Simulated scan of single mutants.
Amino acid sequence: MQYRTLGRTGLKVSEIGLGGEWFNGLTAEESTAIVDTAQQSGINYIDIFMPQAPTRSNLGIALKGRREEFIIQGHLCTVFEDGQYTRTRDIEKTKRSFADLLERLQTDYIDVGMIHYVDSEEDFRTVFEGPVMEYAKELKASGVVRHLGMSSHNPHIALKAVESGLIDVLMFSINPAYDMEAADTDIYDLMEFKGMAQSGLVVDEARQKLYSACEAAGVAITVMKPLGAGTLLKAESSPFGTAMTVPQCIQYCLDRNGVKVVIVGCHTVEEVKEAVKYDEVPAAERSYAHIFSAGSAIHMTGRCMYCNHCQPCPAHIDIAAVTKFLDLAKQQDTVPETVAQHYWALSATADDCLMCGRCEPNCPFGVKVRENMKEARAVFGQKRV
């Protein structure tokens, strides 16, 4: 494992980090096995935004006795309400959720306190001019949070955060597909992807400016969505028409200015091992030049990244899970029995969708959630009695 300095924080971090979202649904034993493998492989960075109590508690068990061996990027403003994850700007809810994070992780500090998911101008003002930022500053002043960060998908809003001088770390969505999309300045009304360049590596100007600004200011970038939720790993789903490998995706991200850690979601020990193969393969096998020879019109409009930023759902549907199972089902001529079983085991399915559309304005990737729900209803049919 290679290590980099996390910008002006001075922390030495592994180039590959663990994405905690994929710990959801795992047991304490499964969580511990993943953390064991990560540590043995040299990974020392973990992102934890999930507010689910069992997930946090299981990670606390996994980290017990070795907390100091890991650098934790823990999020502010994520809460678990009415049985589901949601983002909040309510300061009292934020405080309770953060206290819960500390308690369940069995720690008295977080290395990087990440203000969660700021993508619009309005939300930026709410956070940076309001009680959330004041609370974050208090946490930093007291040492409960060592360094401040913010997560975003919008290069313009992210740049404002960097230029504010208040954040030390930026969590940003990076992969070749995203970087070739034109930036949308009005992310609150949905990010509108304009299409990608069809030849050569043409990084969107706003993103290029952001990455360089981070490097110059010493603001470290930790990367989310490096695999495009797996989209880039298969030719049939990749917008380039050709598959990438995990090492190639990681290499692409590490080649961007400002990037220090590439956070990969790992649901199993095997997936951790797959991610750390990056350090084992020769440089030629990390090359991603082949993806730019596809020559077809490519874009990411409407592709679900399974991030669940569309939540909360008034019908209590785990929208990311429904979409995952829909995508899996569509890859086969007939719906695999195991996929159908997992789908119908959900506490709420597409059949419960109210078609209210409240989810869609929350999606940073322009996904037509209601259309996916209609398709899931048709693909999975009725539950077998």
Rank of each mutant, 00 (worst) to 15 (best):
L63F: 09
V223P: 09
D47A: 05
M196D: 00
Q52F: 08
H290A: 10
A243F: 12
L76G: 00
C77Q: 04
L354Y: 10
V264Q: 14
H153S: 00
T245S: 15
G200V: 05
V262F: 05
A197V: 01
S164K: 09
F128I: 13
I291E: 02
I263G: 07
G218W: 12
Q52I: 03
V169L: 12
C359S: 14
K12A: 10
V272E: 13
A213F: 13
R370V: 06
A376D: 07
R207Y: 12
G20Y: 09
L190H: 03
E121Y: 06
E236D: 14
A33Y: 11
F124I: 09
E360T: 15
A99K: 11
R87C: 05
T334Y: 04
N372Q: 08
G366M: 05
D36K: 05
I34G: 03
E92I: 01
K260I: 03
K137R: 04
G218C: 08
H316Y: 09
D119L: 01
L63D: 07
E30I: 04
G366F: 06
D333C: 00
Y211E: 15
K234G: 01
A321I: 10
F80T: 04
H116N: 14
Y343V: 10
L232F: 01
Q84A: 08
G241I: 09
H153I: 00
E192P: 00
G113L: 08
N308C: 07
Q40K: 15
E270Q: 15
K273E: 15
V281K: 05
V112E: 12
I34F: 07
R104C: 07
L26Q: 07
H116G: 08
A275P: 00
K93P: 00
M305T: 12
P54A: 09
K374I: 05
S347Q: 06
R4M: 09
N58L: 02
Q382G: 12
V272R: 12
T185G: 07
E236P: 04
F124P: 01
R8G: 09
Q198Y: 02
G241T: 11
G218T: 13
K383D: 12
R384V: 12
A275K: 00
H147P: 01
V369Q: 08
T231S: 00
A376Q: 09
G302I: 03
I317F: 13
C363K: 01
E371W: 02
A177E: 13
N175Y: 13
G74K: 03
A53E: 15
I91K: 01
V223S: 15
M1W: 12
N58F: 02
A216D: 15
C253W: 11
P131I: 06
K324C: 06
R384I: 11
A275T: 03
F172M: 05
A340W: 11
H290W: 12
D47E: 14
P239G: 14
E280S: 13
R384C: 08
R358E: 15
R66Q: 04
I319M: 14
T37R: 09
T9Y: 10
R66N: 04
K93S: 01
G20D: 07
V118E: 05
A235E: 03
I317C: 13
H290V: 08
P247Y: 03
S151I: 00
V127A: 02
K160F: 13
F240H: 04
L210D: 14
G200M: 06
A294V: 08
I91G: 01
S41I: 14
M1S: 09
I61G: 04
S173H: 13
V202D: 12
